[in-house]
């Protein structure tokens, strides 16, 4: 009896057990007509404009962490990649790689979390796949999601539209996700209230797009954090970014823990944050819109784009200047 609660190799065989898993775990949570048709692919209807298409894999360890789990992360991450391009996220696929011996209840919780997160954003999970590998060949559970969304044909949004003079805005505190996962995994003997910021940003971004502010680009600073995203764009566009350390929103706890562990909060991953590059005369309006939303209460203007040659310069909180460089190597492994 006990074995029925665990994932077995046969759950990935394509036979009866695979079917059982589909009927008992995936379909009840993800329920929609595309899935319950059990076809080999979903035929999606109703397109206006262009299609945004993206994919990402999730291997976070541990599977659950304060503020979220791998399921919420796998849905939010892909939704956010679509949303920051100005797309309305519509459909996701989900591929699972399961380690033999995984408790089915663990999988069930994660699938439920995926269903809740996608429902919250009005996104449907319309196709999926499951593979089971021998014990030791994967660590518990990995998820790949791919997502598509619709983009208005005339939308001019992307790094190439960023101009000197643009203001740089973020919708809240940095560093929460990476640290929440790290603290849940490693035994530092620290007890903190740090929770991951993992969240789908599509509703927040929709509000911004509907208000028709002069937005030039958005990016989500996930792996590599603020440092990586800002450097990437600065180099791509050959512009400088001047960032004010004083204005960067960060919780006292994250700041203290980073100091204690010798980590750089600018290089730590976020999973519910977007950087907005906006024309200066619309900066105030954008801050107002973000500030009125639950996921934007700590929104702040953190810096300005200037003509230059690809440097990210930090004006430190005491008035000194230094460069923020691209983070090197893998600072914190398996955080997403």
């Amino acid at each position: 009896m006990k074995n029925n609660t665990k994932i077995r190799k046969s759950h990935g065989s394509g036979g009866q057990q695979s079917h059982d898993l589909l009927e008992n775990v995936f379909i009840p949570h993800f329920r929609n007509s595309y899935l319950s048709d059990l076809e080999d692919s979903a035929v999606l209807e109703g397109w206006n404009g262009n299609i945004a298409f993206t994919t990402d894999s999730y291997v976070v360890d541990p599977l659950q962490f304060p503020g979220g789990d791998i399921g919420k992360l796998a849905v939010s991450g892909t939704i956010n990649d679509l949303a920051v391009r100005g797309a309305k996220p519509l459909y996701l696929t989900a591929g699972f790689i399961l380690e033999e011996g995984l408790e089915i209840s663990v999988l069930d919780n994660i699938v439920r979390s995926m269903a809740e997160t996608s429902k919250q954003s009005g996104v449907k999970i319309v196709a999926g796949d499951t593979k089971v590998v021998s014990r030791g060949s994967a660590d518990k559970l990995f998820i790949n999601t791919a997502g598509i969304g619709s983009v208005p044909e005339n939308l001019k949004l992307g790094a190439k539209y960023i101009e000197p003079g643009d203001e740089i805005i973020i919708n809240g505190n940095i560093g929460d996700h990476g640290l929440a996962v790290l603290l849940a995994r490693e035994d530092f003997g620290l007890i903190t209230d740090i929770e991951s910021d993992v969240n789908p940003l599509s509703s927040l971004i929709r509000k911004v797009l509907d208000a028709d502010v002069k937005l030039h680009a958005m990016r989500d600073p996930t792996r590599g954090g603020l440092a990586s995203t800002l450097n990437e764009i600065a180099q791509l566009r050959s512009v400088d970014m001047y960032i004010d350390e004083d204005h960067i929103p960060i919780s006292d706890t994250v700041e203290s823990v980073c100091q204690l562990l010798g980590l750089d909060p600018f290089s730590i991953a976020n999973e519910g944050k977007a950087l907005f590059f906006v024309a200066p005369d619309d900066c105030g309006r954008l801050l107002q819109i973000l500030g009125s939303q639950p996921l934007g209460v700590h929104a702040a203007r953190i810096g300005t784009v200037r003509a230059g040659n690809g440097q990210v310069v930090l004006n430190t909180r005491i008035g000194g200047n230094r460069l923020i460089d691209m983070p090197l190597g893998e600072l914190l492994p398996r955080i997403c």
Binding site: R322, L323, D325
Partner: peptide
């Protein structure tokens, strides 16, 4: 470089070369 250090001062994050690499001094800031 910090990811493939040769000299002693690059190997630790508190070494002089690692610090220079990470936080290069900005010569002129407007």
């Amino acid at each position: 470089r910090p990811d493939s250090p040769i000299g002693a001062c690059m190997v630790s994050s508190e070494g002089t070369c690692a610090a220079f690499f990470k936080y290069q001094v900005v010569k002129s800031c407007a």
